[in-house]
């Protein structure tokens, strides 16, 4: 066997290994999802556990969501006005801001911020609990960590995400309003009425909500799995945290494309 065949073989071996590792992790994540669903009944019986987690994932993300939404809305207003006034239709600014927020930016930016704010802390927390044997200790006390730790965090994420996305879209629209009406001087009536005429409740707002629920499921599962799967060392936990952000962001953008194409064609 000459050198070239050897390096070539090594190359394919590497590709193959990275594929099989990914397949293995995807399978393990699916298993975790299944376990969560099975143990959900247990954790719903003690709803205060989930409420506690909604506090940590939802309420704690509120400030970053509101501040970012306001700025995103204002920027959309400015940029939209700049382009629309060239065509003499600056009243359409409300439509532009509302549609871009409700359909896309609301769910997507919220999910990205959520992955960075709440997802990382979920991964780090679970990873540390694993590293310090807290999960093992719980198992030895005949308490399932999935029921006590994982499932409440999952439902908290799934509940918090659409709420945060709604808040994001609403605050963003207000941000656009602040720029368009008092600052630029677009007519207030035209701003709202054009918006109402063109934003459909079912096709725009409900679809946006569906997106954010799907993102909520994806983000939380990824964060939980990375924490659960992290090697129990400081380095392992920190790498898992990074992976949470990268994987969630890619998953959000990929899912967004798939969902949008379904919603537009359907």
């Amino acid at each position: 066997m000459n050198i070239n065949t050897k390096t070539l073989l090594k190359f394919f071996e590497k590709i193959g290994r990275s594929f099989s590792v990914r397949a293995l992790r995807l399978g393990a994540a699916t298993r975790l999802f299944y376990l969560i669903l099975i143990y959900s009944a247990d954790s719903f019986k003690r709803i205060h556990l989930t409420i506690r987690e909604i506090y940590f994932t939802g309420v704690m993300s509120l400030v970053i969501i509101i501040v970012s939404a306001f700025f995103v809305g204002m920027v959309l207003g400015l940029q939209g006005y700049y382009t629309l006034q060239k065509y003499g239709s600056s009243e359409a600014i409300g439509v532009l801001v509302a549609l871009s927020l409700v359909r896309e930016l609301g769910p997507v930016v919220t999910a990205l911020l959520f992955a960075g704010r709440a997802g990382t802390s979920i991964t780090a927390e679970i990873g540390l609990m694993k590293a310090t044997e807290q999960l093992s200790a719980m198992e030895m006390m005949a308490v399932s960590p999935v029921a006590r730790i994982i499932a409440p965090r999952f439902w908290a994420g799934v509940i918090a995400m659409p709420i945060l996305a709604s808040i994001f879209s609403m605050v963003g629209v207000l941000g656009g309003y602040v720029v368009a009406v008092p600052i630029i001087g677009v007519d207030e009536g035209a701003f709202w009425s054009q918006m109402q005429a063109n934003v459909d409740f079912r096709f725009d707002i409900v679809n946006g909500l569906i997106k954010s629920v799907v993102f909520g499921i994806a983000c939380t599962i990824i964060a939980l799995f990375e924490g659960f799967d992290a090697p129990p060392t400081a380095e392992g936990v920190s790498r898992a945290t990074t992976r949470t952000v990268v994987t969630s962001s890619l998953a959000i953008l990929g899912l967004d494309f798939v969902l949008t194409s379904f919603m537009i064609s359907g």
């Binding site: 909604i54 939802g58 309420v59 918090a160 709420i163 808040i167 609403m170 934003v199 707002i205 909500l209």
Partner: peptide, 20 residues
């Protein structure tokens, strides 16, 4: 409070922004 703000936002979206 968090859930209430969320519901208000959704209502705002439905009534003020959308055509419900």
């Amino acid at each position: 409070i968090f859930v209430a703000i969320g519901v208000i936002s959704l209502l705002g979206l439905a009534m003020k922004v959308g055509n419900l």
